[in-house]
Design a protein around this nucleic acid. Structure first.
Length: 642
RNA sequence: GCUGCUGUAGCUCAGUGGUAGAGCACUCCCUUGGUAAGGGAGAGGCCGACAGUUCAAUCCUGUCCAGCAGCACCA
């Protein structure tokens, strides 16, 4: 006999080998009817699966949160069946559940297109209607391979080979159709419901390797209810409205054009935002003891050979030949330049740590398919810095950087930053001993700083391990912004040293760090994060003074100039348009504050304040408004100084 | 870079084997109006680039460029 404990704490004895269905039946007929799976010690299993040990269990019904993943997975199987029924000869490969849905990769000579979706969806509904039970069978390795080989499913045969020796081969059937699958599944296709939709097709490499054949991937979304599906589709539409590429155009911040793929044409308004970010970061870094420098944009090939970039990073670099037949490369990173500055003049241990910062513009030849608005460009500005320190200072310096980093993100309202730790990649410079040291140092710093860190094995820079600070865009894509890297390699390659208190030469450790990362990317993230509704200190145009009649023109100009003298970015809108029109237009372009002035305000030397996103009107004297808006327009770090 | 899709006015998008249309924006006129579009008139396009097919190409075919989605890449 075994003891099964239920979620409410009650326990009951059962025969060993009892199935989920039997347990459900023992509780209530109605529960057995609703059950689609069960969870044993937190692991979701088929309802038909049995258990032969004491465990805490839970019967999962279709509407439980655990069932969402099952709905999606089942839906993927149904889609695969639908596709094979409609397009004979199509091979199936893998079909996992992902955030918000699922996909399935197919191999077929003719790729699928969006036009195929209605037919596939119709067939899926048909299969769901058939309501065939999902049943699991355990097959032998040889049998499985033979069956799939006979069906012409080469990819499945390969998958069987990839399954570890000690794993059983599980086959899930739904009617006549079956698939190699780890499970679990619900009890029948009918449980899926109709809250699903096929979303897009795309190519994807077999096993994620660009040397392998390209498969056609169909993405779908699936939910437990129609309401959830609609809510999701609506959220997608809303996210589209926050897309920084769209807002960039609507708000006149920047544009791109064919002649400069991956390079930004910053308009005056966007550049204001950009400069505001730099000013902020400059103050924060000054406060933290950094010294700002500037290094050349182009340097001789020899220097890049010495740094290792020529060998490890060549294909990403822009180069240029000159008349005297020298090859120069545009810097893809600032570090080599900063090492030159560190090396220039003798450094003592008393000088350490030396913290050199630069708002350096770097150029990288990114693959064309990777380019994406401001998020992934070929020339961008980094808030880069390199900290040269002694080995025993590494941990403390890393902790300082981490804390500064988090404090900066908080100023922009990012409270949940994902931090990833990446260790040595395959393509790297330096000995394993040096890597051991670097990785240990960074790990110590992570532990000292606290906080959650995800592991990202093999993803480090070619010269050192790194921490990545990841922010999420409106569409749910993650982008690395900040980074902190420990580097024992480059200083050595360049022969940088300092004189220790033992009068000997020592190689410094170099910490690479960027907090915004790329100013372009960070600006893009901010546009989406705020949906264009910038806080006052970042808004390109902070205030528009809008007149109701031309009789107020002179006063409006006076108000504008008054606020400008107080340090704000203000425009006056004196056009011959109705106030409705002006309010609408400046709301659409997301100006945070509109000051409406008519004859009443002229007489009282007042303004009428209207905030973006609100219909309220607040009357105030010009002096009061100037004082309060001026205060509000201060950057967060300056507010803290008051 | 790979797979698929897209490229027509500043923006969003119709459209046809015989060199093009709408709405918004823009310009001008009327209107001086109190918080998200007042009325009227007008101007605006080498139909992404280059080849090919054709009597004739924005439309068909090919190559290239750029963009979009995904994959791969991302110091």
């Amino acid at each position: 006999m075994i003891t099964l404990t239920f979620p409410d704490g009650n326990a009951r004895e059962y025969q060993a080998g009892i199935s989920g269905l039997e347990v459900a039946e023992s509780i209530a007929k109605s529960l057995a009817k609703k059950a689609v799976a069960w969870a044993v010690d937190g692991e979701v299993l088929d309802l038909a699966d049995t258990v032969d040990r004491d465990a805490s269990i839970r019967i999962v019904t279709r509407d439980d949160s655990e069932a969402l993943e099952l709905v999606r997975h089942d839906c993927a199987h149904v889609m695969a069946e639908a596709v094979q029924e409609l397009y004979p000869g199509t091979q199936v490969t893998i079909g996992p559940v992902i955030e918000n849905g699922f996909y399935y990769d197919f191999h077929r000579d003719e790729p699928f297109s969006l036009e195929d979706f209605p037919a596939i969806e119709k067939k899926m509904r048909e299969i769901i209607q058939r309501n065939k039970p999902f049943t699991k069978e355990i097959w032998s390795r040889e049998e499985t391979k033979k069956v799939f080989a006979e069906k012409g499913e080469q990819f499945k045969v390969e998958l069987v080979d990839a399954i570890a020796e000690d794993q059983t081969i599980r086959i899930y059937k739904q009617g006549d159709w079956f698939d190699l699958c780890r499970g679990p599944h619900m009890t029948s296709t009918g449980k899926i419901g109709d809250a699903f939709k096929l979303m897009k097709v795309a190519g994807a490499y077999w096993r994620g390797d660009s040397n392998n054949p390209v498969l056609t991937r169909i993405y779908g979304t699936a939910w437990q209810s129609k309401e959830d599906l609609d809510a999701y589709l609506h959220a997608l539409e809303e996210a589209e409205k926050r897309d920084h590429r769209r807002l960039g155009r609507e708000m006149d911040l920047f544009h791109f054009q064919e002649e400069a793929p991956g390079s930004v044409f910053w308009h005056a308004k966007g550049w204001t935002l950009f400069q505001e970010l730099i000013s902020y970061m400059r103050r924060r870094q000054d406060d933290a003891g950094y010294q700002e420098v500037n290094s050349p944009d182009m340097m001789d090939r020899g220097l890049w050979e010495q740094s290792g970039h020529w060998e490890k990073f060549r294909e990403n670099m822009f180069t240029t030949e000159t008349e005297d037949e020298r090859t120069f490369a545009f810097k893809p990173m600032n570090c080599p330049g900063h090492v030159q500055i560190f090396k220039n003049g003798l450094k003592s241990y008393r000088d350490l740590p030396v913290k050199l910062s630069e708002f350096g513009k770097v150029h990288r030849y990114e693959p064309s398919g990777a380019l994406h608005g401001l998020m992934r460009v070929r020339s961008f500005t980094q808030d880069d810095a390199h900290i040269f320190c002694a080995e025993d200072q590494v941990t403390a310096e890393c902790v300082k950087v981490h804390e500064l980093m988090m404090s900066i993100y908080r100023d922009f309202g990012f409270d949940n930053v994902i931090v990833k730790y990446s260790d040595r990649p395959e393509k790297r410079v330096g000995s394993d001993a040096v890597w051991d040291k670097s990785e240990a140092a960074l790990q110590h710093a992570v532990e000292a700083a606290g906080g959650d860190v995800e592991l990202n094995p093999g993803e480090g820079a070619f010269y050192g391990p790194k921490l990545e600070y990841v922010l999420r865009d409106a569409i749910g894509r993650d982008w690395q912004c900040g980074t902190l890297q420990v580097d024992l390699n480059l200083p050595d390659r360049f022969g940088a040293f300092y004189i220790g208190n033992d009068s000997e030469k020592h190689t410094p450790v170099m910490l690479h760090r960027a907090m915004f990362g790329s100013l372009e990317r960070f600006a893009g993230i901010l546009i989406e994060h705020y949906a264009g509704h910038f806080p006052l200190w970042l808004a390109p145009t902070q205030v528009v003074v809008a007149t109701i009649t031309s009789g107020a023109d002179d006063y409006a100009v006076e108000v504008r100039d008054h606020l400008r003298r107080a340090g704000m970015r203000v425009e006056a809108d004196l056009r011959n348009e109705k106030i409705n029109y002006k309010v609408r237009e400046h709301s659409v372009t997301k100006v945070p504050v509109i000051l409406v002035v008519g004859m009443r305000e002229v007489e009282e030397r007042a303004v009428n304040i209207r905030r973006l996103g609100s219909r309220d009107q607040t009357a105030m004297s010009l002096d009061e408004a100037t004082a309060s808006l001026g205060k509000e327009a201060l950057a967060p770090d300056l507010k803290r100084r008051d």
